[in-house]
Design a protein around this nucleic acid. Structure first.
Lengths: 119, 119
DNA sequence: CTTGTATTTCAATGATCACTGAAATATCGC
DNA sequence: GCGATATTTCAGTGATCATTGAAATACAAG
């Protein structure tokens, strides 16, 4: 994941309602949830929710598909993993010893998701 | 880590210059770097940098200490670990099977840093 | 105590943000 | 097509953001 994408994802999640939306979608799993279902669960007006969905989608954190009258939003787990991977690398890069035990010395050898940028 | 702190940390990192600053401090390790050194490395005017340091500090991502004329900023690895822990939980909570291999099935049993909120 | 260095504080500015109400679009059942 | 449901788009508003230049503060050296 490149820096610009990381910033987009961070900004998308750095907002109360959007973080709630994303957490709800994560709990819902790949099947996703209809926009209306999210609106009802979080008590958000549909236009406000639409605005936030758009931000999450632009950050690549969710996908949409139409299902008759409903728009089904689902969390994009790949992006979230890439984000966590980037942060983990930026937390420990070069100073693994000084970092917390979590990212400093993983039980297995592989640091974390290695499917992103070589840097 | 609570939701409000997570949002603060995410917002602090969701900005080009601040992400650069934090990455630089992570690379510098617990010894930290003088504000001037960061300013020179990233070519940022001192007042702008001071503004960003303040945001990072309010988010608990860095600490400051005075060393004669210089202010030494250092990354707060604990907070970063807590953030990654929160995101990991929110990525996988309840749907570990659907998530990426990284956070879905850690080699060891402990999910990640368990020093945060019980939820 | 004055000069110089390191950094912060203050005020102002343009940009982006989150939200709202109203209107538009898409789909379904009749 | 018509009415109802589900969601988005649009225009406007106050709030917050990132940046800048100028002034202030903190410390050290002579």
């Amino acid at each position: 994941m490149e820096k610009v994408d990381t910033i987009a994802a961070l900004a998308a999640l750095a907002q109360d309602n959007r973080l709630d939306v994303f957490r709800l979608l994560v709990k819902a799993g790949p099947a996703g949830l209809a926009a209306g279902a999210v609106a009802k669960a979080l008590k958000l007006p549909p236009n406000t929710l639409s605005f936030h969905f758009d931000r999450l989608r632009q950050a690549g954190l969710v996908t949409v598909r139409r299902e008759s009258r409903s728009m089904i939003y689902a969390a994009q787990f790949d992006t979230m993993n890439a984000l966590i991977g980037f942060l983990t690398e930026n937390c420990c890069a070069g100073v693994a010893e000084e970092c917390g035990p979590e990212c400093a010395a993983p039980k297995s050898k592989k640091t974390r998701s290695k499917k992103h940028e070589p840097a």
